[in-house]
Computed example of a mutant assay.
Amino acid sequence: MQGSLNAVDRMVNITVQGRDYDIECRLLSPEKTDKDLIVFLHEGLGSVALWRDWPEQLCALANCRGLVFSRYGYGQSTPRPADEKWPVSYMHTQAEHFLPAVLAALGLDNEKPVFYGHSDGSSIALLYAAMYPERTKAIAVAAPHIFVEDITIASIAKAREAYLHTDLPQKFARYHQNPDLTFWAWNDIWLNPEFKLWNIEKYLPDIRCPVLAIQGKDDEYGTLDQIQGIHRVVSNTKLCIIDDCRHSPHKDQPEQLNAALINFITSLNPIQADNK
């Protein structure tokens, strides 16, 4: 890691569809206003704290600003009510309404960030890039879901057993205000039979920005059909397939992932010889 970054933790209030939410945010080197902004979108059970220090590492190496935040229902953000069930379209709502509201609350709505998504966060990044192409510079999507596979459902069912019969709830309590509400919102909707029809492939042709689609060869939550499906439809897509890597490249192979991301981000900003 190249030095330390200025990290600013904030809670911001947003209003989405008539309801108020407090959202936990961490801004990395916000003073670097002339540098790219990377927005990190966590997985289905993630939060600001669960990223650990990897966003800081990447932003330092890439000389970028960063925004890390916990979505509604995660981390220290507003928990979901116990009687609220997430709909099949919950990721669409995050992309269309919540993500723009968070950026606006932080005064970042006029920027064109680079988005890095992981798992559910990748699907949200893909949807956002399709819905708001003019507001997206590029997206890097790790272990994305564009449709539901049997391997995904099987692994989520195993996660359910682990949550019921191991110390996983105690571990999650370190990272979420209410770990039970967080876990069951995600687990219940993915195991709902209606969710088997969830599919975002029809949105992919609307993506105009460069895409880096990343997946571990040993991903237990999806096959390479996910990133290959993106590559077939979105012409400006580069594939990054990582050996000896499961569902979380930033944990399993951070050096390889960082190298791929730095090359990708650098390609977005070719060096101008006249500025040397």
Rank of each mutant, 00 (worst) to 15 (best):
L28Y: 03
F147S: 08
L27S: 06
I38V: 14
R26L: 09
K171P: 06
L239G: 03
N6G: 00
A49Y: 11
L261Q: 04
E161S: 00
I230G: 02
P144F: 07
P205T: 11
W184A: 00
A95Y: 05
N192V: 06
K171W: 13
L106F: 07
G222L: 10
M11C: 08
D120V: 04
A104I: 04
E134I: 11
P249L: 00
W186V: 00
G3P: 06
H42E: 07
Y74M: 14
I200M: 06
V114I: 15
N63H: 14
L126W: 01
E201T: 15
V39H: 04
F195L: 01
L103A: 04
S119E: 04
A95G: 09
I200Q: 01
Q17V: 05
D20A: 14
A213T: 08
S89I: 04
Y21P: 03
T266Q: 13
L127V: 09
N269Y: 14
D9A: 12
Y90T: 05
C209N: 05
N192A: 11
D109K: 07
I151G: 03
M1D: 03
Q228K: 12
D206C: 11
L5K: 06
I230Q: 00
G66R: 02
A140L: 09
A82R: 13
M91I: 09
A273F: 13
N199K: 07
R160W: 03
V48N: 02
N269T: 13
N187A: 15
G46A: 07
W86A: 15
R174G: 12
A273D: 14
Y175C: 05
T78C: 05
A101T: 02
L45C: 03
F172W: 11
Q2I: 12
I230P: 00
W184E: 05
A159R: 05
P81H: 10
S155N: 13
W86P: 10
S70K: 04
I207M: 09
N263S: 15
F115D: 00
S4Y: 08
D20G: 10
N263K: 12
L103C: 10
N275Y: 14
A130H: 03
L204Q: 05
L5M: 10
N258R: 06
L181H: 06
E161K: 08
C25W: 06
Q170F: 08
A273C: 12
A95E: 04
D206L: 13
I23G: 08
R160P: 00
N199S: 11
W190A: 14
L268N: 12
L61T: 09
A260T: 06
L191K: 09
F98G: 02
S4A: 08
A104S: 12
A49L: 15
